[in-house]
């Protein structure tokens, strides 16, 4: 009997995908489309897990949800580390710049919002508050949306192997 593959490796790869795509400037704006990269990362992790499954194994939605959740949590860690890297070595903080431009463009938001943003941005240096809040926000958002991605993945990939197997058997029988 074949054993089921580990969930850690696909979750790590899914998480890395989330972290990288959610951190690279410009590309990270894809998350404005219903957290596209986060859902996509969860889905990708689920796909990698499903690919390694033996055909006898029934792929459940719960498994997809777990892989999505783990991918989201790893994605939050990788994303925060990469954001830190971009800020520390390249001086890039696109997320904050976008938020600032929205506030400055007269977005019907009170001026106090800018004061809060300033607390995250202490004279151009990386504010510890930014890292703490960024990580906790990412952990919540990523775990929710990547779980959704994992569940969608399990709906897409469920029992495809069984379907393929039965169709190949029927075609073989037809040839005979």
């Amino acid at each position: 009997m074949k054993e089921t593959p580990g969930k850690l490796t696909p979750s790590l790869i899914g998480g890395l995908t989330i972290g990288v795509l959610s951190s690279i400037p410009i590309i990270n704006m894809g998350n404005c489309l219903c957290c596209m990269w986060i859902i996509g990362g969860g889905l990708f992790g689920t796909y990698l897990y499903w690919r390694e499954l033996p055909s006898s194994h029934v792929f459940t939605a719960g498994e997809g949800a777990i892989i999505g959740l783990l991918s989201g949590l790893f994605g939050a860690l990788f994303g925060t580390l990469l954001n830190y890297f971009f800020m520390a070595f390249l001086g890039l903080n696109t997320g904050q710049e976008i938020l600032r431009s929205i506030i400055e463009s007269g977005n019907d938001l009170p001026s106090e919002f800018e004061e809060v943003l300033d607390e995250f941005d202490s004279a151009g240096k990386i504010a510890p508050l930014f890292v703490v809040f960024g990580l906790s926000f990412s952990l919540i958002v990523n775990s929710i949306f990547a779980t959704i991605g994992g569940i969608i993945g399990s709906a897409i990939f469920k029992n495809k192997k069984t379907v393929k197997k039965t169709t190949s058997k029927t075609t073989k029988k037809a040839k005979k």
């Binding site: 997320g95 938020l99 004061e115």
Partner: peptide, 17 residues
């Protein structure tokens, strides 16, 4: 207002706002 700003920043991770 500051609490509102934090919530607004939180949802900034998911939406263009």
């Amino acid at each position: 207002k500051k609490a509102g700003a934090l919530i607004w920043l939180f949802f900034g991770a998911t939406c263009h706002q």
